[in-house]
Design a binder for these strands. Structure first.
Lengths: 215, 215
DNA sequence: CGAAAATGTGAATAAAGCATCACATATTCG
DNA sequence: CGAATATGTGATGCTTTATTCACATTTTCG
């Protein structure tokens, strides 16, 4: 039987500057149209028109619509994973709680980048999941958090499993940041949501006896 | 301009037993096909075939495809809201922590009902959100939780806003139950995920000094 | 310059889905 | 029974969309 995987390889690689610009325009246009019209409304014709090129040009560099979406997904995933890893690897975040604050900030700001696009791409990930390279963002982030937790095991509650805790933290953080940005913009004021998420997560993993802030 | 709202009213109300059976078959078939083929794959033709009726019959009771999906969404939403409210109103849950345990159990078991369908319908809610009656499930649940928290204000951490806490709890619970059922079935064993969620949420809202379980 | 390669075009094609309608069958009930 | 009503049928029309292809334009470089 035929492969169940989608061909995501570019049909042709852009060599000249002109075609690089075309590819860029198409990708940018795809993001814009996706934001404005949603997945269904993002037709190849509309993307091409917005990019100021013809459909034919689009198909010269992307074998099909899914491949185009896949590029956006990968690009966006890399961006978010990068932000997270940077936060966790920053030597300024020496303590467990500082690290938590850093990823919470990173997580919420990642959603700020482009909440609508984030939402749409997220919904498409399962469908595009058939793409070989589109490995889950959340898994990568979860692993990074787990590593961080292990490095700070002494500051954690006893009996707290870093592997499980990392999943819980990543999931809750993602969901709350998403909710705030998409449905509850009011919670973003004064960094309220960030403080709530910190209270939630720190209370969950951080050992209560250690050095405390005044309360 | 034409209305931006979708006509969700049934074209005709089934009077005879025969047609009631048809409507039932169509709705059931829609759920099945949705689970098996996803939203895009759930064509009217396929739903009708699975239901063992003709497309014409389908369109006799549903003006369009969206109306059919809307019925599924409402049905599912009512189910989940019901489970949650029941848990919160159960007089057996006298204490704050007992109530939390109850909604956590309710939330995770709600996902067990039909995780795949839940996921698909959730993704479609925004699209079907244009439907007048399809008011958000999560808002209703959040409100129920908020009421419960207010009734147990004395057991809560001082300075904990019930309105905000309800949003945080609902969001985190939904996300974690979802994650466990869809991607991390392993966490379901021994009720591990329920204990983790309890630890997360109770530590967030429950006042630390009150009566504690041995730990 | 001018030939070859790269890039761009957009009408045409084909496939798929939603929704309709003219007609067939079943049920009700006087 | 038989007329009126309810229900069921599925080929057909229509629209939308992805994708192609024969040809036009631009760029490269000897």
């Amino acid at each position: 039987m035929a492969s169940q995987f989608v061909d995501a390889n570019p049909r042709k690689l852009p060599c000249q500057a002109r075609s690089k610009a075309t590819v860029d325009a198409v990708i940018t246009a795809a993001a814009q149209v996706l934001i404005e019209r949603g997945y269904e409304g993002a037709t190849t014709a509309r993307v091409a028109e917005r990019a100021g090129v013809s459909v034919g040009s689009l198909y010269q560099y992307f074998p099909n619509k899914e491949a185009l979406i896949a590029v956006l997904i990968e690009r966006h995933a890399d961006e978010i994973v990068g932000i997270m890893q940077q936060a966790l690897n920053d030597p300024a975040n020496a303590t467990l709680e500082d690290g938590l604050r850093a990823i919470i900030r990173a997580g919420t700001s990642a959603h700020h980048l482009d909440p609508t696009l984030h939402k749409i791409l997220n919904e498409q990930v399962p469908r595009a999941g058939r793409l070989a390279k589109a490995m889950d963002t959340s898994r990568q982030i979860t692993r990074a958090i787990e590593r961080f937790l292990r490095a700070h095991a002494s500051e954690m509650k006893p009996g707290c499993d870093p592997a499980v805790a990392a999943i819980v933290i990543e999931t809750a953080l993602e969901a709350l940041a998403h909710k705030a940005v998409i449905e509850r913009r009011d919670l973003l004021a004064d960094g309220l949501i960030e403080r709530e998420i910190f209270s939630l997560i720190a209370g969950y993993v951080s050992r209560p006896n250690g050095k405390r802030r005044r309360s």
